[in-house]
């Protein structure tokens, strides 16, 4: 059997950034002995060994650490079989809607012996979201375009959120109405024509992995949208460039993301 951490709780390796954040949120931080290559939050993970990610899990080092629980992506079937064969419990994470975030928090919490703390954290998460929802309920719903990628400084190769997934859920909860809600996909490559036809009143231009970005660069990204002056959001100055990983990682920090988005929608 794998060595138990202090207090008889299992140690954990998490290759999924969202779940890593959950582990720290439910107080299981001290049990985490390894994380994935793309983990950067909370700051504590910087000192933990990086054990690969979706395509390149470092099986050998994971086995040497002998965690009680391994968190992996649901598509890592082969890794899962390998781990279960040697008696390591596996939590397979799938990115889904906003509801899945507290659900996953409870599940991973009970798996690492933190059921009570997880319940508390998940409930707090849900309460915070309810508050945001309630505050937004009174306002008119603005037609919103959620962009999570385009060429820097130009309106090319625009990826937007369709009508499923946590980004769509967060925006809906924060008082927006996703203009591409009818496309039942998480990611939609949209043309400038489709954006002009959709006529969004607010544009959320999300950038991730670039928190170093200066205000000048944010202004430049905003200015790129001036190519489409007929879009109401552009005409009325409601193009918001929001940067940070919290917008794209379906973990506990989605509460902060939702607050930022709600503030942008209120503006």
């Amino acid at each position: 059997m794998p060595p138990p951490a202090a207090g008889g709780r299992p140690t954990v390796v998490s290759l999924v950034p969202a779940v890593t954040e959950m582990l720290f949120a439910v107080g299981a931080g001290p049990q985490v002995v390894g994380v994935g290559s793309f983990d950067s939050w909370p700051p504590e993970v910087r000192h933990l060994p990086k054990l690969g990610a979706l395509l390149d899990p470092d099986v050998e080092r994971i086995l040497r650490l002998r965690p009680g629980v391994l968190v992996l992506h649901v598509s890592q079937q082969e890794l899962r079989t390998q781990m279960e064969r040697v008696g390591i419990r596996v939590f397979a994470h799938a990115t889904g809607g906003l509801d899945d975030v507290p659900r996953n928090m409870r599940k991973i919490g009970s798996l690492v012996g933190r059921a009570a703390e997880a319940e508390e954290a998940a409930a707090a998460f849900e309460r915070s979201l309810d508050e945001i929802r309630a505050r937004a309920a009174g306002r008119a719903r603005r037609r919103t375009l959620i962009v999570f990628g385009h060429e820097p400084g130009a309106l090319r190769a625009i990826d937007a959120s369709g009508g499923i997934g946590f980004l769509h859920d967060v925006v809906t909860l924060a008082g927006g109405e996703n203009v591409f809600a009818s496309v039942k996909r998480e990611s939609v490559r949209v043309s400038t024509e489709a954006i002009l036809a959709a006529a969004p009143e607010v544009i959320l231009d999300l950038r991730y992995g670039q928190e170093w970005e200066s205000e000048a660069e944010a202004a430049r990204e905003r200015a790129a949208w001036n190519a489409l002056p007929a879009v109401p959001a552009v005409r009325t100055g409601r193009v918001h460039v929001l940067s940070g990983d919290r917008f794209v990682i379906p973990g506990p920090r989605l509460v902060e993301a939702a607050r930022d988005i709600a503030a942008a929608l209120e503006d």
Binding site: S191, T192, E193, L196, A197, A199, A227, L228, P229, A230, R235
Partner: peptide
């Protein structure tokens, strides 16, 4: 005005350049 004419923009910004 061009800035307020979505039809003109679809034509001149979206379709004609591509």
């Amino acid at each position: 005005p061009f800035a307020e004419n979505p039809d003109a923009q679809i034509f001149f910004v979206a379709r004609l350049p591509r």
